[in-house]
């Protein structure tokens, strides 16, 4: 089992009242799954994804990731854990404007303290795999949305994560570009990467092997 959420609650207190963002979430994810999280705006999709990605905390419950109990880990260990095993893909790509495609891909490797020559090889490999060798010296602003998201996915993949978390990865793309990204996800999944995506689109959700529906912080 890759990860397991048991009775996860998350809330904010406004005016003395608890407003639940996540309510009693129980979820088990096996390696190799492709899960789509769906639900209307404000139902807690992104919050759930951030909790899984360890970017956000929760108030109650247990979270085990690869046999480590995340809820009892210190901040530093937790960030080490997600750095090692999780890759993020964002709706608005979040590429660094000042860096070229090549440098954007290289960045996570620098923080992993991987040697320069090795980094080069890994970046070249990834550029090759995604067919963007010709774009390697361009800046994000010089790319189309689809190409930017392609780089975003490549960046998420470069450090060989077990799990990819994608928050509406096609939200800013037109349908053709969106389709390409989803095809890419499907292929990656076939190669063994576990994927959890948040999406609004039924069609995109169909790419996954399992759909989780959220409403007001609850799984339905």
């Amino acid at each position: 089992m890759l990860l397991q959420l048991n009775n996860i609650f998350k809330w904010v207190t406004t005016g003395g009242q608890r407003i639940f963002l996540l309510k009693d979430i129980n979820l088990e994810v096996e390696e190799g799954e492709f899960i789509s999280i769906m639900g209307p705006s404000g139902s807690g999709k992104s919050t759930l994804l951030n909790v899984i990605g360890m970017l956000d905390t929760f108030d109650e419950g247990e979270y085990n990731f690869m046999d480590e109990s995340v809820h009892s880990l210190k901040e530093k260990h937790r960030s080490n854990l997600y750095k090692q095993y999780i890759g993020f893909v964002f709706q608005s790509y979040h590429l660094l404007d000042e860096l070229t495609v090549k440098e954007n891909l290289e960045m996570p490797l620098i923080y992993k303290k991987i040697k320069g020559s090795e980094r080069k090889a890994m970046v070249a490999d990834m550029l090759d795999r995604f067919n963007i060798v010709g774009k390697k010296d361009l800046f994000p602003a010089q790319l189309s949305g689809g190409q930017q998201q392609l780089v975003g996915v490549a960046r998420a993949l470069i450090s060989n994560p077990k799990l990819i978390l994608a928050d509406e990865p096609t939200g800013n793309l037109n349908s053709k570009q969106g389709e390409e990204i989803m095809e890419l996800f499907k292929q990656l999944n076939r190669e063994g990467v576990t994927i959890i995506q948040v999406t609004h689109s039924e069609k995109n959700a169909e790419y996954g092997s399992r759909i989780i529906n959220l409403l007001d912080g609850r799984m339905v």
């Binding site: 750095k83 993020f88 979040h94 590429l95 660094l96 923080y111 450090s159």
Partner: peptide, 16 residues
Amino acid sequence: SKEVGVRKVMGAPRKA
């Protein structure tokens, strides 16, 4: 701030 966020998510410790 966006840059800081992205870098942190990509694994940058605060020190870096």
